[in-house]
Design a protein around this nucleic acid. Structure first.
Lengths: 188, 188
DNA sequence: CACACTAGGAAGTAAGCACTCACTCACGAG
DNA sequence: CTCGTGAGTGAGTGCTTACTTCCTAGTGTG
C-alpha cells in the first residue's frame, strides 16, 4: 500500500488559485481591508507560500487587478471581433451584460478606479480605461457623444450593482436600471 | 500677569473640525486605510478626545458621510428651488459643476457607494441615492430616460475625477469629459 | 469660596497586520 | 545512495491600529 501522497501542484497552478481568491477578497473588502492570511486560506495554502509566490501584498493586488483588466478587455474585443459601426457597439453592449454576470471581477475594477492613493493602481486603472475607450472608439467608429453615452450608462450600472440594487432593487432603481440598459442598446 | 490660557472650544466646534479632517482622510484613503490618529492630528486634538467625541471610527465615518450626503442634497435642492421641468434639471446640471469644485466631498461619496462590506454604509448610501433620484424626478418631472441620462453622465464624470482625469487629462478623456458635460446640459 | 461640569490629553493595551526564517518533504538524476 | 531542487509550512517578529483608563485644568454658578 503506497503512502497516501498529498497532491502537489505546480507553482503556476497555485498562482491562479491565489489570484482567484485574491480577486474575491479585494473585490469585496478593498485593498486595505483584505488580509493576506484570509486570501491564503481561501486558496488553500499557507500565508508564507503566498509571499513566496507574489512577493508582497501590493504585487498580488496588482497582479489580480491586471488579470481582471485583461479579461475585461478580451470580452469586449471578442464581442467586437469581425463587426464594425453600430453593430459592433451593440455587441459590446451585450458583452456588458455578460460582464455583469460576474459581480466579483467588475467590483474589483470599480474598487481600483476609485483608489485615489496608491499611484501604481491609478496607473493601471488609467491604462485600462485608455485601452477600453480606444477599442470602443476604433471598432464602433461612433462620435464622442455616442461613445460617452455608452460608458456613462456602463458606469451607472456598475455603481448600482455595487449598491446591490441589481439583486435587491427598489422601485426607483428599477427605473434607472431599465432605462440604462435600453440606452446602452440604443447606442448601436 | 494672567497665566496664558489655552483657547478652549465648544465640543460642537471641535466636532465640525474633526468631521472636516475625517472627510479629507476618508475621501483620500478610504475607510480602512485612514487612521484615527492622523484624523485627530489634522483636527488639532488628541486621539483620545476624538473617541470621546465620536465613540468609534465607524461612527465617525458614518457621521462624516452623512454630513456630505446632506450637503450634496442641499446643493441640488437649492438649485431646483423655485424651478420646475427642464429649467430645474438644467439648474441641477449646473449644480453638479459646483459640486465637482470640491473633489473631497464627492470622492467620499464615491468611496461610500463602492463600499460593499459594511452594511451601515451601504444603508446610508442607498438612502442618499433614493432621495437624490426622488428629488430629480419630482422637481424635473422628466421621464426615466432623461433622469437616468443625468445620473449616468454624473457617474462617468465622478469616476473620471477619481482617476484624476479632470486635473490631469489625456486626449481620450477630454473627449469623454466634454461630451459628458454637454449631455448633462442637454438633459434640461 | 466650594462644587459640579466640561474640554482635553498622556500613557497605555490588546489585537491584527504584513512579512520573514528556518525548516521539512517529495522526487528525479547521476 | 547522495545530492540538488521545487513545493510547502509552523512559528515567529516588529509594527500599527482602534480603543481605554485615568488624569488635569479651566469655567460657570451658588
Amino acid at each position: 500500500m503506497t503512502p497516501h501522497t498529498v497532491p502537489r501542484q505546480t507553482a503556476g497552478e497555485r498562482r491562479q488559485a491565489v489570484l482567484d481568491a485574491a480577486t474575491s477578497e479585494f473585490a469585496l473588502k478593498g485593498y486595505h481591508a483584505a488580509s493576506t492570511e484570509e486570501i491564503a486560506r481561501a486558496a488553500g495554502i499557507s500565508q508564507a507560500y503566498l509571499f513566496r509566490l507574489f512577493g508582497s501584498k501590493k504585487d498580488l493586488h496588482v497582479a489580480a487587478a491586471q488579470r481582471s483588466i485583461d479579461e475585461l478587455y478580451r470580452v469586449f474585443a471578442a464581442a467586437a471581433e469581425g463587426r464594425s459601426g453600430e453593430e459592433a457597439l451593440e455587441a459590446m453592449g451585450a458583452a456588458y451584460a455578460e460582464i455583469m454576470q460576474d459581480r466579483t471581477r467588475l467590483m474589483l475594477m470599480l474598487k481600483c478606479w476609485t483608489t485615489t492613493d496608491e499611484p501604481e493602481i491609478r496607473r493601471i486603472s488609467r491604462g485600462a480605461w485608455r485601452e477600453l475607450v480606444d477599442l470602443v472608439e476604433r471598432t464602433s467608429g461612433e462620435p464622442p457623444e455616442v461613445v460617452t453615452r455608452f460608458f456613462a450608462h456602463g458606469m451607472l450600472l456598475t455603481v448600482l450593482m455595487a449598491l446591490d440594487l441589481v439583486d435587491d432593487p427598489e422601485p426607483w432603481s428599477r427605473r434607472l436600471l431599465e432605462a440604462s440598459w435600453k440606452a446602452i442598446e440604443e447606442c448601436g
